[in-house]
Write a protein that binds this DNA or RNA. Structure first.
Lengths: 141, 141
DNA sequence: CTACATGCAAATGCTTTGCAACCTA
DNA sequence: TAGGTTGCAAAGCATTTGCATGTAG
């Protein structure tokens, strides 16, 4: 997979991939950077960004462009949807099978050539739900 | 609407709102800035950002957070979906009625409290479709 | 008049990039 | 050894913010 593209499996690249799998969450480049640094203290943020880009182009990981500023990454490359907490940014997989036929519904009624779609749910994660129910809207004391 | 929130209808704010309506597209803050500047040359980008933020909080316009970096704004505040050209960034409304019941499908199978969802189609706009069909994948000669 | 708004410029946050040294195949 | 890769630092964008001045109500 790497060799076909004239790419090398460096210690950094390997570690980034392994740790993304182990985390099981949907970390940002920066969160991943922190995690990887515990094993390779001298790795740079730039290297993390470069590798995440390369790995997602190879289809080894998935780049998520959800709402909110920061990009996140997913070890799971299959088609699936996500839920994002509008309060803290936590991202979970959404338990909903891909809507396979939805793109066909636009056929003939748009000038665009559709190639895909993205569905994202928003809401409050358990932690932030609590904070909202119990009285104050702002930070707790 | 404005007075209830102790806000004022300044020349800048009024113009931003009017021009966003007239454009009928889904401009970024910067595109809107260019358009508004033709009428008010001394307006600043910061003012455009500040007003777009305020107007979207008031529900007078809609802030779009689609894939790709830049945020876009929509004069149409109703619930609807969009199609984005992955090549040039053009954004159109998607001719598809809102999936009203889709959020219910997650009920009971997620720890999140769902408050909404966003569906975005990706593809090529007519202009970029042509460029892709006709031979070269990269820039044309 | 007075509080909200503006223009300007500096600052921020995330991501990308140039470059010399480094390391994998 | 060659060429992809790294660490570092600087650069790039989009967006936000501090502050003195301007202005709507």
């Amino acid at each position: 997979m790497l060799e076909k593209n004239n790419l090398r499996m460096t210690r950094q690249r390997k570690l980034i991939l392994e740790i993304l799998h182990k985390m099981g969450t949907h970390p940002s480049a920066d969160e991943l950077y922190d995690a990887v640094r515990m094993h390779l203290p001298r790795i740079s943020l730039g290297t993390v960004y470069r590798n995440l880009e390369i790995l997602s182009e190879l289809g080894q990981i998935q780049k998520l462009e959800l709402g909110g500023a920061t990009r996140r990454f997913d070890w799971d490359t299959s088609k699936h949807y996500h839920i994002r907490c509008v309060e803290c940014g936590r991202v979970d997989d959404a338990p909903l099978a891909p809507l396979q036929k939805i793109e066909n519904e636009l056929y003939g009624s748009t000038v665009f050539t559709i190639i895909g779609h993205r569905l994202e749910f928003t809401g409050f994660c358990p932690k932030c739900s609590l904070r909202h129910q119990s009285g104050s809207v702002s930070a707790s004391p």
